[in-house]
Design a protein around this nucleic acid. Sequence first.
DNA 1: AATAATAATCGTAATATTGCGATATTAAAA
DNA 2: TTTTAATATCGCAATATTACGATTATTATT
Lengths: 108, 108
Amino acid sequence: MGATKTDHFTEQQNQIATIAKALGHPARIAIIEYLLKVDACICSDIVDELPLAQPTVSQHLKELKNAGLIKGNIEGNAICYCIDEKTFNILKEYFGKIILTVTNQKCC
Amino acid sequence: MGATKTDHFTEQQNQIATIAKALGHPARIAIIEYLLKVDACICSDIVDELPLAQPTVSQHLKELKNAGLIKGNIEGNAICYCIDEKTFNILKEYFGKIILTVTNQKCC
DNA sequence: AATAATAATCGTAATATTGCGATATTAAAA
DNA sequence: TTTTAATATCGCAATATTACGATTATTATT
């Protein structure tokens, strides 16, 4: 095996898992933090910032983009990547709801 | 390759990535949601709830526990797993901060 | 003590991810 | 138009994850 049984779970469960998975790598967290810091970005900057080769960074950017966490605009012969607020809001609301529910619980 | 270069990133980046990674699977999201719903839990219940075999569920529970997202208390011959609020709060605060920063940005 | 029930661990096959060198692709600059 | 710069894609090796059958603790019940 090795393949996730995606079709057995709800659409929302898969959605949250996909977003979380995309954030499940320190390089991708570092990319997000760098984009926040510079408030505008070109990929080569990120390559300089990270301890990873250009193809690797490109791959991480692609995964963040697929998960909807960043968006890329072509800008001359470079590409401007930025945070996609929408998707982070989905996470924030989801975890907010979890914490609300937990604080009302009386289990352990 | 295949091994993540953990040592090149900050401790916080690794921490957030580890937590996010643990949530990066729909089965583990489903487990969290089930624990929220029943407000007390035994592993066999989860096995009945999920489309996965007992060893697989046990493995997912272990990963959630390692990431600090749930904690398990022995309760008779069964085990009571529950949400660990602390770790969810780390996430909530982290994403809250990101969203605050993003809304002040003017990039794309 | 023997049995049953619950959950963890082991071993292993299938698949996915990570990382990067080599090679495209694309668009500005000379 | 050739060259240069910035990114993306391909292909592959190393490693990690997912899933589960078989087995092993561990504890309750009989």
